[in-house]
Amino acid sequence: MEMKGLDYVVLNQGNAQLTELYRAHIGDWPKFFKMDTLSKAGFVASELLLKKIGERRCEGDEFIQNRAIVLFGSTASLCADRNYQETIQDKDNYYPSPALFVYTLPNIVTGEIAIRNHWRGETSFYVLEEPDAAQMAFHLACAFQDSVTESILAGWVDSRMNDDFQVFMTIIRKEDAADTERLAGQLQLIINDLNK
């Protein structure tokens, strides 16, 4: 079966770029400024991807049940963990920040994207040592095994430090995952672009 390549977005050039992209292309979601770098990177990449493919966003009470979100990364929420740790490091200046604490889980980024788009499908975040196309294709294929999921927002989102991140985001449709090897090949092409 002839299948076209996956549409995708790659970003990896510093936190200032995320804010610039937000202001230039999104601008209607002030919660962006409260997010940690991992969520900002995932959020902006997902927004740019959805614009690129021209997908209409749900409004009001509409929601999409059959879109899952499956993301991968190597350092998970380590960056947010460090930022939070700083608020509790000094016993004489011990003021745990609730706003930083809420991001000390990597799957929060999947929630931010799901809330924005009214998607109510499955969400998950896997920790891999590095972007591994075969592993990712396997987990994505597994995510289609339920009776609901028709498409997945998938990607690699990683943030080692506040100003250092790497993200790609793509949409996988059920037919893309029917041949796991072929899907791995397509993901590898995106990973090559990510690592350039």
């Binding site: 003021y95 745990p96 920040s97 609730p98 706003a99 809420v102």
Partner: peptide, 9 residues
């Protein structure tokens, strides 16, 4: 609600 907690802090 998270903002409320931050204001308390």
């Amino acid at each position: 609600s998270i903002d409320a907690l931050e204001l308390i802090v």
